[in-house]
Design a protein around this nucleic acid. Structure first.
Lengths: 170, 170
DNA sequence: ATTTAATTGACAGTATACTTACAATACGGC
DNA sequence: GCCGTATTGTAAGTATACTGTCAATTAAAT
């Protein structure tokens, strides 16, 4: 009789799983971001896209997705929303008819400057409960882990590759 | 002239933000889970729900949401999908006509038992790149941080409260 | 130079994750 | 026992996040 002893299942199968903990922390991070930045009507993803377009004016959607490691399909919708809010504009690339280049508008640059302190506050708040030394340790291990697992993600970060033929502005 | 010196924006505003790193790790965690468990057609969230229904048979959707800290609305759809796959059944509660109680089916209990090793493999893989001591440190800090930030999340974990009048089976 | 392959943005479809709102039901104070 | 209130499940609407696919276009192979 095979499989005669099924392992007894406990909630530890959920609570101690790193994947569960990362999910919870991500949800906490988004909640804190939204709370601190509620005056600005910008989501964390939209903020990351704005920052990247700011540091790489004229980047296209595919390269943007590689630089922040967000899915290309998802980013299409994000870009549409940023455009609807008049924070960015899309201009057709002269040398490649498929490509649309992304630029910040004045309003986009303004929001980005204004939201920064609130973003910093949110980022600080989510580590606040830890002792300063533990914050540094966690951030260091987390940075290492994300980097070492880069290829495991569906959309690996390709910061360098993506910018090879751009003006190397970031 | 106010605001005459806008802070120069760099990609560090994204790359070093803990929120960004948590988002990346969550995406990596999901990718690894899906890859290891592709034979089973179960998502991480569906797995967590199945485990909880297994350890708390007869739990209702609202309490389930509190025990795994997932949004109540989201969970409605998750439950529908688990029901469509015949992994769970919903039975009306005799003493409260609003409530529908959740139970595993034989198939649900079977999948849960079979998928466990693959889930463990995925969870191990995402920490694998770190040295064993660093894995322990990260997991400890992450667990602390999630717990200390519990109230900041939109759906705080309420494991105890949620089970007060249940049979205390977990 | 013409066929083949790769890239780009777009779209459809599924699955979380959250908000607000709502009807049905249950419960509290009185 | 009635009434205001809270709870439960559900639904609609928005925003990620991923899978495919597709047409248009460009690049590469020969």
């Amino acid at each position: 009789m095979p499989n005669s002893k099924p392992t007894p299942v406990t909630m530890d199968a959920v609570y101690t799983a790193p994947g569960y903990l990362f999910r919870r922390m991500q949800q906490i991070a988004v909640a804190l971001f939204i709370e601190e930045c509620k005056a600005f009507d910008l989501t964390p993803v939209q903020y990351a896209a704005l920052v990247t377009i700011s540091t790489h004016p004229g980047i296209d959607a595919t390269r943007l997705s590689a630089v922040i490691a967000f899915d290309r399909s998802t980013l299409g919708n994000v870009i549409e929303r940023l455009q609807a809010k008049d924070y960015i504009v899309r201009k057709p690339a002269p040398e490649d008819k498929r490509v649309k280049l992304l630029f910040l508008t004045k309003a986009g640059a303004g929001v980005l400057n204004e939201i920064m302190p609130s973003v910093d506050k949110a980022q600080a708040r989510m580590l606040q409960p830890l002792k300063p030394a533990d914050r540094k340790t966690l951030l260091s291990l987390l940075t290492q882990l994300v980097d070492l697992n880069n290829e495991a993600s569906r959309v690996p970060l390709r910061a360098e590759d993506a910018l090879e033929h751009l003006g190397r502005s970031g």
